[in-house]
């Protein structure tokens, strides 16, 4: 049934999306500003992009961030998927209650507490057993795995909960052992959820500042740490350029992912909506 869409709601949408996008667009526009004074327009220029490419501090930080993000997202996807399986497909076991709490807690924990607690752990471990020796890429990766595996677990868990359990029962009935059924039936079906979990873990890792600041050591600065130390002092044009690059890359990735999901949906049979 068609109903009129009220003008009030159109203005709500217009205001809401302007609020969301105007600041971002502003940063992108000023990244092409020739002037060093960020608030005054000095003509179109690409010089800040050029400077960005020659800024070794930023390039090194970006490279470290990417490495950490790929490793931690991959490990978090494995651990998070196992956690989701343990929560939905393993029945009862001792300590399940504690486990459920530990999987959910990182999602609501303030980063500042997680960061502090992990630092205290690493320092104490080094004190007691000599590992990890100092802080850097390793401790950052371990920390990122810990907080992002919770997100992966939630995503995969909701997919597992929505999945038709009779599929696995049918496989079991046809002679599959639990291990084989997980491998042959369950994992292929939760693959899309694992993929979005990986993407989320990757983004979270690239983005994290607070936890990383606690657990990193001298010489290991991630991209957010470098950005933070620069923008703490105010607007800088090369950060505008960097922001623009990140926004463009992310938008393209999201658009690709969205397009893939949409075309994937188009292939699957849909129930026609009928009304009379």
């Amino acid at each position: 049934m068609r109903r009129r869409y009220p003008t009030f709601l159109i203005s709500v949408l217009a205001f809401g999306y302007a609020f969301l996008y105007v600041p971002i667009i502003l940063v992108m526009v000023y990244s092409f500003n020739d002037s060093r004074l960020v608030s005054i327009w000095g003509g179109f220029s690409l010089r800040w992009y050029g400077e960005l490419l020659h800024n070794e501090q930023i390039i090194d930080a970006a490279w470290l961030s990417l490495r950490v993000a790929v490793m931690s997202a991959t490990a978090a996807t494995v651990l998070g998927t196992l956690a989701a399986l343990a929560l939905t497909r393993m029945g009862r076991y001792r300590g399940r209650f504690l486990f459920t709490g530990m999987v959910a807690a990182p999602l609501v924990m303030p980063e500042i507490i997680t960061g502090l607690s992990l630092l205290l752990l690493f320092v104490s471990l080094q004190d007691l057993v000599g590992w990890p020796n100092g802080r850097g890429a390793l401790t950052i990766t371990l920390s990122h795995i810990t907080f992002s595996m919770a997100y992966v677990a939630v995503i995969v868990q909701s997919r597992l909960a929505a999945m038709d359990a009779t599929l696995e029962e049918a496989a079991m009935d046809l002679g599959g052992t639990p291990f084989r059924v997980t491998l042959d039936i369950t994992l292929p079906l939760v693959m899309p959820a694992m993929l979005s979990g990986w993407l989320l873990a990757f983004t979270l890792s690239l983005d994290d500042l607070v936890i990383t600041s606690f657990v990193s050591g001298p010489g290991a600065s991630t991209l957010p740490m470098v950005i933070y130390s620069k923008v703490k002092l105010g607007l800088t044009p090369d950060i505008n350029a960097l922001a623009t690059l990140i926004i463009v890359v992310v938008t393209l990735c999201v658009a690709c992912a969205g397009w893939l999901t949409l075309s994937g949906n188009a292939k699957s049979p849909t129930v026609a909506r009928t009304h009379n």
Partner: peptide, 26 residues
Amino acid sequence: LIILPFWTSFLLRVYAWMGVLGDHGL
């Protein structure tokens, strides 16, 4: 469109508001 900005860097989104709110901001 609501979620899209969420995927870009949190830090940079906060930074963007410095350009909106500053003395010579938008």
